[in-house]
Write a protein that binds this DNA or RNA. Structure first.
Lengths: 145, 145
DNA sequence: ATACTTGCAAAGTATTTGCACGACG
DNA sequence: CGTCGTGCAAATACTTTGCAAGTAT
């Protein structure tokens, strides 16, 4: 019911595909890649198309229903927009799961940037590491930036 | 001369391609995408191949000679590793140029994460906006994450 | 000499687009 | 019933890989 209103309010139609995407993200509780979302939605709607997933992830991010995040491998992760508003993420290199971080570093920086004549529109803060279950063990795929 | 020693020290051979990549980045003074670097290096060495650029950008990032950064459009930017060490970036959505930011938010966060059982290996902090020359004017391409 | 590098070509991965049919409101 | 959304197929963008020939040390 929640979602129905949210979509309507944003001028988006209520479709099975959109409901399935949100359901999948809600059940998972963490951020997922478009591919992972696609795979899970396919179990609910076997005929879904990849482009439908992409279009809706983009659209719902624009409308503020979801939030997206580009990790350092060049893959986008999507999750439900948390009710508490603005936040950042910790991404586990072991299991790939991500977790919200409430802390935001922009406050301190905004003034500094303004002094230099820079205006700030968006920012991105992502912490990579290993979660409790994954230990410091088997991480592999991070680029050595 | 600088670079020659640096490469040697890291076990990398001194090639025209590597020298050209570093020259281009030094002259530009800001971070560039692989494509931009390729285009500029081609003016020095007309026959360079794209894969050579990619391989060297990766390699020199691993060796700590360059540093890389994934922006929210999924493109990697590369720049010379600044002598001052660890830093982050401001990326202008008008002209695409990037600038080092000395501030790092991890200090405060590290302990908090440790309490929750998370270990931290890398992090990413990128601020998007407009630089003095670009004003608040014509930016377009940012995703609405 | 020999291990590292390069150019070339081809493949891989992530995402986007145009179009005609179908469905929500 | 008009507008928005979907499936399909093809295209695009960025990056990676295998291999044989070339080059730095």
């Amino acid at each position: 019911m929640e979602l129905e209103n949210l979509l309507k309010q944003k001028g988006l139609k209520i479709t099975d595909q959109r409901k399935a995407i949100v359901k999948v993200l809600k059940e998972c509780g963490c951020m997922l890649s478009a591919r992972e979302i696609f795979d899970k939605v396919k179990k609910i709607i076997p005929g879904v198309n990849f482009s439908t997933i992409y279009r809706n992830l983009d659209l719902m991010s624009q409308k503020g229903i979801l939030c997206g995040l580009m990790v350092d491998t060049g893959v986008s992760l999507y999750g439900l927009r948390s009710e508490e508003g603005h936040h950042h993420h910790f991404v586990c290199k072991g299991c790939g799961r991500s977790l919200a971080i409430d802390y935001c570093p922009m406050g301190l920086l905004e003034k500094e940037l303004a002094k230099k004549g820079f205006s700030h529109t968006e920012h991105q803060f992502v912490v990579y590491g290993f979660c409790g279950s994954c230990g410091t063990s088997g991480g592999v795929k991070a680029k050595s930036y």
